[in-house]
Each structure stands twice: as structure tokens, then as C-alpha cells.
Amino acid sequence: MAIELRPLEQFTIERIIPIHIGGLDLSYTNAALMMTIAVVFATALMVLATRRAALVPGRWQSLAEMLYDFVADMVDSNIGQAGRQFFPFVFTLFTFILFANLLGMIPYSYTTTSQIIVTFALAAVVFILVTAVGIIRHGFHFLSLFVPHGVPKVLLLLLVPIELLSYFIRPFTLSIRLFANMLAGHTMLAIFGGFAASIGLFAFFPTAINVLLVGLEFLVAVLQAYVFAILTCLYLGEAVNLH
């Protein structure tokens, strides 16, 4: 067959506008373009839809308010009253990932969140923020986060290293979860698509699977944004309230 299966090709970074400043490569890439579009869409939804804020909201305003309430509930229930100050950050994180994931579902577009460096950067920001909040609010006492309550002293020898490990592994789990989900989904779509293109008459079956996969991928796109945001809330809640 002439068609070659290269399912990972879709993740290639292309420099649309090469920019080099002081030896640094700051080129505007296809990934940067999708990030820009995500920002434009999120801003359009949140700013333009409420330009004439109506008492009885229209379709777009309802959507914006749903998104707002959704994240606000998430922040309130996981962090509590002190969580309000983190609301803009969690909201930005959630909308950014949500729009990046959903925009990636458009054929021939680019999925920013399938880049490990992007998801890792976001997770690292969350990790640094959580740690900073914990130390600022509790100082040295923040370390008690690693000592479980009501556990025999002997077990602490075992549990404290586990707690420490599970804390410092967070940026990796958080970033790899999102990255792997997006990567796997889009790779699968590309594989089945390429498969369908290569077998001609029997293409119906892989295409049918692809249809189901697209549905699943939409679910994953929303779910992973939610998971990322709610884990951020949980971590922040822990740092703010210490258990």
C-alpha cells in the first residue's frame, strides 16, 4: 500500500513565524497558534457573551455562567472560603486546558495538551503554587502534611517517605495523565484513520470505530480538563487547610 501509517506525525511542531531573540528560539509555532485561539475563544465566551449582561441570560451567557458556577463550586467545595483568591487561577487553568483539548478535536488542528512540556509546565506551576501557599500560610508546620495522624510511630518510618514521594511525584502524575490521555486518543484516531485509508473497501469498520472514538475523545477532553482542575483544587485545599 502506498499510504504510510505515521500516527505521531500530527504532533510535530512547526515554526510558523521563526523568531530568534538573543539566541533563544521564540518562534510562533502551530502549538502557539492553537493556544492563541484557545485564549481568543475563552475570552470571547467570557467577555463578549456578557457584554450586555442580561438578567435572563441568552445561550452564550448561560454557557459562560455555567462554566463560572462549575469552577466556583469546585473551588468552594475543595478549598473552602480561602479558595476565592485561587478562583481566577483555577478557572484560567480549567478553561485553557478545556479549550486546548476541545480545539484539538477539530481535524487538522493541533492539540497543545498532547505536548508533555506544556502539561508539565502547567503541573509545575500548580506544584510550585501549592508548595508556596503551604509554606506561606503554615511555615514550618506545613511539613505536618507528610505525617499522617493517629499512626503508630514505627509505621511513620514507612509512611513519611511514602507521603513525601507522593507529594513530589505530583507534577509528574498530573502532567503525564493529561499528556498521555491526549496523546493516546489522538494516536488511536490517526491509526484507525490511516488504517481505514489503507484497506479501501473494508474501511467501514475502522471508520465506525473512529466515530465511536471521536465521541470518547470528546469525553476525555472534558474529563481530563476537569481532572486537572479538581486535582489542583484538592492540592490547594490541602495546602490551605492541612488535611
Binding site: A31, M35, T50
Partner: peptide
């Protein structure tokens, strides 16, 4: 490097837009 740079730029812009305009407006409504 280019990815991190543009991620930082877009993310900060979105954060400022949401914190400054989007969230107060929707929350206000």
C-alpha cells in the same frame, strides 16, 4: 523553549483577561 514561551504568554494573557474582565463580568451578572 518556544512552546514554554508561548504557553507562558497565552496563559498569562488569559489569566489577566479572566481575572480583570471575564470573571467579574460573569460573576457580576
Amino acid at each position: 523553549v518556544p512552546q514554554l514561551f508561548w504557553l507562558a504568554v497565552t496563559f498569562v494573557i488569559l489569566y489577566l483577561l479572566m481575572k480583570g474582565i471575564g470573571l467579574p463580568r460573569v460573576g457580576g451578572a
